Simulated assay, not measured.
Amino acid sequence: MLFCLFCRPFFGGVSMCIVQAVYGTLFEAEHRSTFYIPYWNLPLTQWIVPRQRKFRSDLKVINDCLDDLIKNAKETRQEADVEKLQQRDYSSLKDASLLRFLVDMRGADVDDRQLRDDLMTMLIAGHETTAAVLTWSIFLLAQNPTKMRKAQAEIDSVLIDGAITAEKLKKLEYIRLIIVEALRLYPQPPLLIRRSLRPDKLPGGYNGAKEGYEIPAGTDIFLSIYNLHRSPYFWDSPNEFEPERFTVPKKDENIEGWAGFDPDRSPGAMYPNEIIADFAFLPFGGGPRKCVGDQFALLESTVALALLLQKFDVELRGSPDEVEMVTGATIHTKNGLWCRLRKRT
């Protein structure tokens, strides 16, 4: 169901081969993010190794599908006035989609490869991550019935007529905090990788070397977001599920170089971000390489969680200890999250 929630804005209906190709591509991304030797860069590997042949095949299926959709969207672009397009009510269009919006806003001469890369980012990077965030949100809420009832009370008071609008989303404060707390405990991805393009020097950080660390050009730097988000230096009761923590300022004078957590540091932000936490909270990275789909993912997760809790009570089938965590490009469950749904009355 989570896959359909995400993919419908792109494709409407998709064949099963596309779904399988997307999953195959994701699995290969996970494999490459955790394997020690990048053997796939070796000559002829893409033809000799079975999993690499499958990856090329999956990628071709996805690219061909996206190319056809882009071609159709560009051929049916009817309006040339960008100002009029910006005022268009896309909810009233028969073929409303993110692709239609991208084609309209960027003009008829936009590069097809750029459009395809944008869609690939949203589809591949946005599907598994958003599904994982929602999975762990339910996992955490199911273990905290009081917090689930608090969330449902907020939903019932805001979504009186059942419909979700932009204004109502702003009032779903607790639902938004649940999403970001799930991202804190189970960040997607749990690891960020950056490569130094030139020699640099990183600061020593808390309890690190005072003189800092020399970084040669070409060095790959691995940032453990999972450990950062559960660090007792930056978070009280770091392993506990407490969405309310994001509403309370926190500062520790003993941590040199950290300005603390201040909800007022980023006025107008709907969701806590790296600025509010002075980079102790990095679910989407930070700086110029920050994830371009952060707000889309957060809004999508908020809507999906609100609609689910509006209609159902959720409880785990079995013990939480039976839910095994697997890490790779994302943090997900080994065998799924089996739950009992009871329709609310």
Rank of each mutant, 00 (worst) to 15 (best):
S92R: 15
R88V: 03
T130I: 00
D95W: 01
E154P: 13
V61E: 07
S97Y: 09
I138R: 00
R53S: 13
S137C: 06
A96C: 14
M122A: 13
T135G: 09
A153V: 08
D156V: 02
D104R: 09
Q152H: 13
V61R: 01
S57C: 12
L115Y: 05
R56L: 13
S91V: 07
M120D: 07
G126D: 00
L59N: 07
L115R: 04
Q86H: 13
N72M: 03
K94M: 07
V49G: 02
W136N: 03
D104V: 11
F55S: 12
R149S: 10
R51K: 15
R100S: 13
D112N: 15
R56P: 01
T146K: 11
L115N: 03
D58A: 05
T121M: 08
I155S: 13
S91F: 07
K74H: 11
N72H: 06
D67Y: 09
V61G: 06
R106H: 15
E75K: 14
L119H: 00
L119M: 15
K60N: 09
L119S: 11
L69W: 10
S91I: 04
Y90V: 13
E75Y: 11
S97F: 03
S137K: 00
L134G: 01
L93T: 02
P145W: 04
A132R: 01
D104F: 05
L93W: 11
I155T: 08
T129D: 00
K94D: 10
R106F: 12
L99S: 10
R77M: 13
I138W: 00
K71I: 07
K54Q: 12
I138H: 01
R106G: 11
R51F: 07
P145R: 14
Q152V: 10
A80D: 14
P50D: 05
A80N: 14
T121V: 05
T76A: 04
R51G: 05
R51M: 05
A96D: 08
Q114L: 13
D81A: 10
S157L: 08
S97P: 11
L140G: 02
T135W: 01
S91Q: 08
K74R: 09
A73K: 13
V61W: 03
V82N: 04
D117E: 14
F101M: 15
V61K: 01
Q114C: 03
R53V: 15
E154H: 09
K147R: 14
L59T: 14
M120G: 06
I155A: 12
T135M: 06
D64I: 12
I138E: 00
A108N: 12
A153E: 10
D109Q: 11
D117Y: 02
S157F: 05
E83Y: 13
I138D: 04
R56V: 11
A153D: 12
V110N: 03
M122Q: 12
I48W: 04
S137P: 02
L102A: 11
V82G: 02
S97M: 04
D81K: 10
V61I: 15
P145S: 08
I124A: 02
I62T: 01
K84L: 12
E128L: 09
H127P: 00
D89W: 06
L59W: 02
Q114E: 09
L85A: 01
R116I: 05
S157W: 01
L66Y: 10
E75I: 03
R77F: 01
D95Q: 12
T129P: 02
L93Y: 09
A132L: 02
I48N: 07
N72F: 06
